[in-house]
């Protein structure tokens, strides 16, 4: 049996990995979202409402929340088409803050006081979702669809001129990413059994992006590496006491300086999985 302490770390990594995957999916089309905590918040609040107030089983609640957030993602994806690069990032940042601010004012779900009453969920259940979605995305990366996503990422103009509907690809990625973030949010709510709007602020959005970039943004399992790293690193730095965060920040800068593509990249991933060159 693992201790409660380790179980909590494991659960945190699973949830963070799902959040990171949600960023990864959108980033794969060349779009940086700094507002995925917003989708996570939508998933957390909706799933909690569905289990606590409507009495639905958690799995069904998660699926419904994912669908709803996916639709929000698609709606967000349309205006996002008008923006590129850092401007899109700032707009998504604004979206995330708007969602947080919305729940802060949404009294039926507790407003600033937060919401509770969820039933605690096991770490095994969390990893069933996390592992399942990770495997799904990893498999998807070998598909024809993912080639279209990569083409859109690499050169949108060239992609459209070889007949790819880059608009649909980019909007679809927002929808899919939002759905995955919502699952992460729903699991977060049922792991911590208490949520408040501050759980889903800019810090969270940045944490998700950080996990992707540190872990490696060219392969899905990079999200796993990044999430585990972000959860374990502060723990292993505990001996530094008050200077723990400064050490963490320093390590972050160092990793970016010496391995800017993240820890896991396509080459390393292939070597690790003993897979021959893509075919």
């Amino acid at each position: 049996m693992i201790s409660t302490y380790h179980a909590a770390l494991l659960a945190d990594s699973g949830i963070l990995m799902l959040g990171a995957l949600s960023v990864y999916i959108i980033l794969a089309t060349g779009q940086l979202s700094l507002g995925n905590a917003g989708f996570m918040g939508i998933g957390a609040y909706l799933a909690s409402y569905l289990t606590v107030e409507a009495g639905l089983p958690l799995t069904l609640a998660l699926v419904l929340s994912a669908l709803a957030a996916g639709m929000v993602g698609i709606v967000i994806g349309f205006p996002a088409l008008r923006l590129r690069g850092i401007y899109l990032a700032m707009a998504t940042l604004g979206f995330g803050e708007m969602v947080r601010s919305f729940f802060l004012n949404f009294e039926p779900m507790g407003g600033a006081g937060g919401f509770s009453g969820m039933v605690h969920v096991s770490v095994g259940y969390i990893w069933l979702w996390a592992g399942g979605i990770l495997v799904l995305v990893t498999l998807l990366e070998r598909s024809r669809l993912w080639l279209e996503i990569r083409a859109t990422h690499d050169d949108e103009t060239a992609a459209s001129l070889v007949g790819l509907n880059t608009t649909a690809t980019k909007i679809g990625a927002f929808g899919f990413g939002a759905a995955v973030a919502a699952v992460a949010g729903g699991l977060f709510a049922h792991h911590h059994v208490y949520i408040e709007p501050a759980n889903f602020g800019f810090d969270r959005s940045i944490e998700l992006v950080l996990a992707v970039i540190l872990g490696g943004s060219t392969v899905a399992p990079g999200a796993l590496v990044g999430a585990v790293l972000l959860v374990l690193l502060p723990e292993t730095l505990r001996f530094l006491a008050d200077w723990r965060l400064a050490a963490f920040g320093t390590l972050l800068v160092l990793v970016l300086l010496v391995r800017r593509q993240g820890i896991l990249d396509r080459g390393l991933f292939r070597a690790l999985t003993f897979r021959r060159q893509a075919s």
């Binding site: 940086l32 690069g85 850092i86 940045i206 992006v209 950080l210 970039i213 943004s217 008050d242 200077w243 723990r244 965060l245 400064a246 963490f248 920040g249 320093t250 972050l252 800068v253 970016l256 300086l257 800017r260």
Partner: peptide, 17 residues
């Protein structure tokens, strides 16, 4: 662009600490 942005984030964590 994302990489230098996150490295400035690293500094912001250090400064706050």
């Amino acid at each position: 662009l994302i990489t230098p942005m996150l490295s400035t984030l690293g500094f912001s964590i250090i400064l706050q600490n």
